[in-house]
Every structure is written in C-alpha cells, then in structure tokens.
Design a protein around this nucleic acid. Structure first.
Length: 219
DNA sequence: ACCCAGGTGGCCC
DNA sequence: GGGCCACATGGG
C-alpha cells in the first residue's frame, strides 16, 4: 500500500466540500464555549445552548464569571452533562476574568505552548478542546484530532492507535503549518463522518470511497 | 427501545 | 500507560 499523501486527500475533500467556514461562531469566546459544550454532543444541541446563553446575556466573560450556576445550567441543559459543562464554562470565564482582566487578547498573548498548557490545566479542557480553541479561536496552527480522525484514517489503512499525540504529530509533520488548511481539514473529517456518518463502504457518494480505492487498492 | 454524539476526569491495576 | 466508568440530553 502506498503512503497516503495528506495534501492529496485534503485536495479531494476541498474539491468536494469547498470552504466550510469553520468554526461556526460569531466571536472567539463563543468558539471556546462551543468547544466545551460540543464534547460528546451533537452540534444542533449546542446551538440551542449558545442561543440560550446569548439571550441571557451570558456569552460574555465578565457576566458568565459572575453568573449564578443554576442559570448557566438551565441555559446549557440541552447539551447534556449540563452540570459539568455549566461549571466548566464558568470556571473558564472566571479564569480569564481574574487573571487577564477579562480580556481574551491578553489571554491569547501567551506563546502557543504556554497557552496550551494553561488550557489543559483547566477542568474540562483536554487536548481536543484545547487545540480547537487554539486553532479556531486563536488562529494558531494546531491540528485538531477527534474520534472521527481515528476512524476515518483507520478506514484508509492508517492506524493512529487512538493516541492523540501520535495522530497530531502524524498530521503536523506531513502538512504545511497552515491555519486555513488545519481548520478545513478537521472540518472536512467531521463533515465526512456526519454526512456519510457510518463510514460504510456501501455509501457510494462518500468521497472517502475514492480515497479508499486510491490508497487500499493501489489505483 | 436501543444507540450514539466534534471528550474529560477519576479510579484501578 | 491502558482499561473501565460516570457524566445527561436529544435525535435517529
């Protein structure tokens, strides 16, 4: 089997999906909140929670940091794990409020590695959420890995062993360090999984089938 | 009625 | 370091 050319795969997906404009959010802070809310949760439910937070005037660092827990919980209930998530988005807002004067630009002023470590120290922010924030809220070239990435690449013959660091190194070492490409790539993998979601071979329209043919059968 | 969803943290070995 | 489990709602 030939080694997949990640840029070649990207070009196929780009031709198929075009520009998706990810992440869907109006502000960087909204990206951060969405990144926590979407953990293990479909986006349509997250949208409702985001709307609730907006309507309550809480999609704002200072307000969210001071908001009553029960009010936040009711806003995000539809996203599931609502007690955890309410606590975690409040902790995130409080952290920025207290340590960076509620100023996201100050928070993002750190170098990428320091910022990533600080994000990972917060409750409820693991590697995928941290990198989503870095890539989509702060425009840093960090490749985001999710469950779909492992499934899709396993399908074309690349076993990334479910290991986040291994997978991220795999992509970052084979692609130009480019925010637009990283943003689109992750979005394409998610859309691929959502639209052809079972990643079944019998799904003829799935652009992944072309990739499978190409990389598994040798074209 | 099941099963899964753009994870994370805690606990055990 | 790996293998479980809880966390919770909503839609297929």
């Amino acid at each position: 089997m030939k080694e997949p050319d990640l840029m070649d795969i990207y070009n196929h997906l780009h031709t198929y999906f075009g520009e998706l404009g990810w992440w869907p959010a109006e502000t960087p802070f909204e990206v951060m909140i969405g990144a926590i809310l979407t953990q293990q949760t479909i986006w349509s439910n997250v949208e409702k929670s985001i709307e609730n937070l907006k309507d309550a005037g809480l999609l704002n660092i200072r307000k969210l940091a001071r908001a009553d827990m029960q009010v936040i919980e009711e806003c995000v209930r539809q996203s599931g794990f609502f007690r955890q998530k309410a606590k975690r988005i409040k902790l995130l807002a409080s952290h920025i409020q207290e340590n960076y004067n509620g100023n996201l630009d100050e928070f993002f002023a750190m170098d990428t590695q320091t910022l990533r470590k600080e994000l990972l120290q917060m409750e409820g922010i693991g590697p995928e959420t941290a990198d989503s924030i870095l890539l989509y809220a702060d425009s840093k070239a960090k490749f985001v890995i999710d469950a779909y990435t492992f499934r899709i690449f396993k399908r074309i013959g690349i076993d990334l062993e479910g290991k986040y660091r291994l997978a991220q190194d795999y992509f970052e070492s084979r692609l130009p360090s480019d925010v637009a490409i990283y943003r689109n790539y992750h979005a394409y993998l998610v859309e691929l999984a959502k639209n052809f979601c079972k990643i079944k071979p019998e799904c003829a329209e799935c652009p992944l089938n072309h990739l499978c043919d190409y990389y598994l059968k040798g074209h």
